[in-house]
Design a protein around this nucleic acid. Structure first.
Lengths: 202, 202, 202, 202
DNA sequence: CTATAAGCGAGACGGTACGTCTCGTCTTCAC
DNA sequence: GTGAAGACGAGACGTACCGTCTCGCTTATAG
């Protein structure tokens, strides 16, 4: 599953207990010691697991972290749709404010930085991320935009991918590079500016 | 200056030769071996310098890399203004296409990833980056937008920081996380969408 | 065994190949580069071994050197008795001349100086030396003296430890501190003087 | 003077204050931190002196230590003769007991170990030691023995150098290699055994 | 209902790099 | 023009992890 190598490893005999312990330890350690000090040795020790058990099933530290996020996201819910009250601007503000809150949460900040760092340096991992985590989330965002588009609230020829990136990109950037205060007000401002565009409206 | 620690180190006696050799080696190695294999030991060896000379003047690998970029940016020019032909959309497309080209340049891709990674995990470095590199660039971008704003081409109440982030954020994100193809066409699309906004124009 | 620390290190899994390579390298390097330039790093490199493998099993450079001598002494023989022809003076001269020759042998001189230096600065090592190397040798010397004592060739109330030290101490001292020429003739002179004493014999 | 290299250094301008500070610091540090941690760097810092001032005047750490002992021995007295009460045995016991006491003194133990170690590994230093420190002391010892020899208390054909080494060698050895308890009683035993010899006296 | 082969915890191994310390040389500046 | 101050290239220190490799133990089919 997920990111394991295609060895002869007999997945049937795999210990589910160890797998969960490893993923939990990886996520927790990323939060506690930060990306730089996150090590396979440390994960194995925390999980009470032999190092080989990690190396057997994951090709890299980043892959472990990725699976840790995957476990969390699957454990959560069935990828629910974004709110759709009919008021696009309000809905987007709600969602972006939630994004801001999550990025601000100390429990998620460091692990997410760690994952993003690994993705930035590992194209394979980036592909897996795009397919398994970012893709589904993006699809839900586009669903909401499509609904608005059908209602005539968005330009008919709008490229939804560009639209999504214009809404979430600024937040992601401020967060990752600490390029400025990441507040709910900022989220509101981004939504308003993106919807209206930079040009004056008549 | 820049990022050195405020120790008792006597900067007056500092070897400029070694400093330049270290920064050049750091930048080059980041490009050659990638972020993960970039080591102080390697930089020192490549620069023909003792490790202590690096540790004496920089607090971290990221600070060296930061100064390497700083040297490059200072060596370049006097921070020239963005093109201003009067046609905002065309000017922005020119500049964003240049940004795409730079991010695509293998000589800069890896070192910039390395620097961005360090920034993401080091708030002090992020502050220095914001002040010394990102700040001046952003100011030039805002200058161009302000000029357009005066000409009535941009909304009078536009938050220029949000505008800048809405234009460059999507590019930065696609690049860093490999979230999609980073093409000149994409740059154009971002400019158009940002200028017009997501909502239909009458 | 020998001088290893009493950590949780699992001696059962210890690599005998590495152990021998380390001890051989330590002894050889001590002879080649001298005590001052003998380094754990160098021993590890020469032995084709990771530094940690040395640090895991020995507490100090001196302990490695000690075990190197131990390996040699055990590899040699079963600690044979000193010659006993019935002529004590001749036998002692034979043995002390052999000692002189050994101390003069360039293959052993430097390593032995290195070991002696470590012993001089490390009481624990000194205790191990006294028990494992010096002790057995001294016992054989005392055996020979005891035999002579029984034959009435030595004073009945002689303190054998003092006797041994009076015979070998002068040699050891001349050698270690280069306090004078260390020749077979000197060995003879020491034996004669020790046997007869400083006082005139009637 | 003493052990300096034969450079063009202008000894006339030499700072006597610095010289004394360095020698004092060297001796004290040898006693405080032990031989292994004794460093030129540390001596310079303790003496409030630039490292170059040490390197300018002494060829090695051992040479500094040697001069420190030289300063002490010269500062002491005019190399007084050993006691000569007419009772050789009693006089020797007195002197050897004093030697034992000195070797036992924690103020001298470590510095002397350090000096002896340097001598053991540096033939030039050993020669200087033999000439400037050990030589004069040995001459006084031989003077006392010669006096006894003239009085018929020692064998007429006695080799005085061998005699000295047989008396002091065992002490030096026990001390340096911690080969056994170094007590006044031991000193007495050595004197008695050396005087009478190992063979039975009629 | 064994036996056998895999996964497992543990951890030793050859390595690389860390950040610190000291070496011995060289340069700058105050006296 | 000496001497303190200390930067420099060099390289060893002892530690932390890397990724690989056994070692016994357990466990879950497959004969």
């Amino acid at each position: 599953m997920t990111t394991q190598r295609t060895t002869t490893a007999n997945a049937a005999r795999r210990s589910e207990t160890s797998r969960r312990a490893i993923l939990t330890a990886a996520f927790d350690l990323a939060g506690e010691v930060g990306y730089a000090r996150l090590s396979i040795e440390g994960i194995a020790a925390r999980a009470g697991v032999g190092k080989q058990t990690i190396y057997r099933w994951w090709p890299s530290k980043g892959a472990v972290l990725f699976d840790a996020f995957l476990m969390l996201s699957e454990g959560a819910e069935g990828d629910p749709a974004l709110p759709d009250t009919g008021d696009l601007e309000a809905d987007l503000k709600t969602v972006l404010r939630a994004t801001v809150a999550e990025l601000d949460d100390p429990r998620y900040d460091e692990p997410m930085r760690a994952l993003n760092t690994e993705i930035a340096h590992d194209p394979e991992l980036a592909a897996a991320y795009a397919e398994r985590l970012e893709g589904p989330m993006r699809e839900r965002k586009k669903d909401r935009l499509r609904s608005a588009q059908r209602a005539g609230q968005l330009a008919a020829d709008l490229d939804l991918d560009v639209a999504v990136e214009m809404l979430w990109g600024p937040l992601q950037n401020r967060w990752m590079l600490r390029g400025g205060p990441l507040t709910p007000e900022y989220a509101d401002r981004v939504v308003e500016t993106a919807l209206n565009g930079l040009r004056p409206r008549p």
